[in-house]
Design a protein around this nucleic acid. Sequence first.
DNA 1: CGTTCTCTTGACTCATCTCAAATCTGGTGG
DNA 2: CCACCAGATTTGAGATGAGTCAAGAGAACG
Lengths: 249, 249
Amino acid sequence: MLQAPLILQEHSRCADCPIRHRAVCAYCEPAELVKLDAIKSYKTYKAGETIAWAGEPMDVIGSVVSGVATLSRTLADGRRQMVGLLLPSDFIGRPCRPAVAFDVVAASDVTICRFNAPEFEKLVRATPALERRLLDMTLDELDAARDWMLLLGRKTAREKIASLMAILARRDANLTQQTVADGILFSLPLTREAMADYLGLTIETVSRQISALKKAGIIILEDSRHVRVPDFVALLDEAGDDSDGGMVS
Amino acid sequence: MLQAPLILQEHSRCADCPIRHRAVCAYCEPAELVKLDAIKSYKTYKAGETIAWAGEPMDVIGSVVSGVATLSRTLADGRRQMVGLLLPSDFIGRPCRPAVAFDVVAASDVTICRFNAPEFEKLVRATPALERRLLDMTLDELDAARDWMLLLGRKTAREKIASLMAILARRDANLTQQTVADGILFSLPLTREAMADYLGLTIETVSRQISALKKAGIIILEDSRHVRVPDFVALLDEAGDDSDGGMVS
DNA sequence: CGTTCTCTTGACTCATCTCAAATCTGGTGG
DNA sequence: CCACCAGATTTGAGATGAGTCAAGAGAACG
């Protein structure tokens, strides 16, 4: 997932962009894309590289084109909590804010469609389609953050792992448009440590619960980074939230 | 805090509104306020009353004028997590979304400046000042949600309680502009149960940790709903996050 | 002045963390 | 191609923070 070989010319056309219809530019007209084109550039970060440090002035603003980045905060004594998972089309940076609020780290190799911040902010002011899209995306992120809060505050370790698997499976199914015929197959773009930081657990507990779900037949590990889910409804059941009846959306 | 007697005529002028400069209308020009005036009405809910149910069509949209409301989600087996705390000037409802995502409940008596949803959405589209303010407020909420995620995922019960006290103390100090001379005094607008739901704890643990902080002299309970903080820096220290050096912002 | 609800406190349990060691993995140089 | 190494992952054993269950103390209300 998400590591598909991606060849981006330095000046690839927005129209050909893989995230054209889901990113901040989704609502833009061709004429508006031209303006974005003028202030954008691509930049790639290696897995593990820090893209921005909490508290520093905002110098990266743009969209994730490929790869996975994480937003996280660290307590004085080293405890760390991931507070955002940025997948392709997600927006990095807070428009019109002076500083980054959280550490942004590349979890895999990450390519960003990066904008010059002042220029971008000027463009946002002048382009209702951009501002509207930004509002929509921010509202979506807020909803996701709130679901995540339910997970952090009230779910058991097993439910947390199952929830994470369900989120990744769903996203991957969406992305690749695969049918659910004999189970969903997806790759884990996160290390055990990243999962632990995501879920508010230790790596040992993450490992143990993954083993437990494997033993219960809920998930099958093809290898340590590829998971098959034979029965998505069973997985959702383990995740605890009964919201929807198992639709792969 | 926040329960100051409030007399709102059914058609109070926006210009006289206590939240005029912090709510969704903050960036509006007088001419734009007139349009908002035309579609607004006040409504008051009793403490404990449910303002909106998760999943139902959105029929309440507007600003909290006075009182405290909570956003929360409940798991099938009854576990509940609060995911938002709405104080005066905060916005209720998701513009342009068909349904409410979370239960909205009045924690104290709550007065809302309520808008007709379709009219309001139309106005948002036509009024950049409104849309911009909505984006700013949503970004702030997202930041708050992420700090909260750190609390839920990584803090101990004692740190959670201290963090909550610090948040309430800070908000109250802001609101009343009081000096920090001999400690901050503020009221607890939440029951033990609401605090537990906020912090991802049980009421017993909340009670125990409040007692512990009291015994340690970090907080003083004037009565069960009024707290004095003699040394705000000491409280921040207990809260675990070292971000700022104790400024009451 | 009961009644009811909220809050506090105690005793015990259990899920998750901590510390420690074994195993697996991918990459490197011989 | 293979042995070795460093990092990632798994597994085990024991400690502990927070939950559960239960009872008692205050406060609010009629």
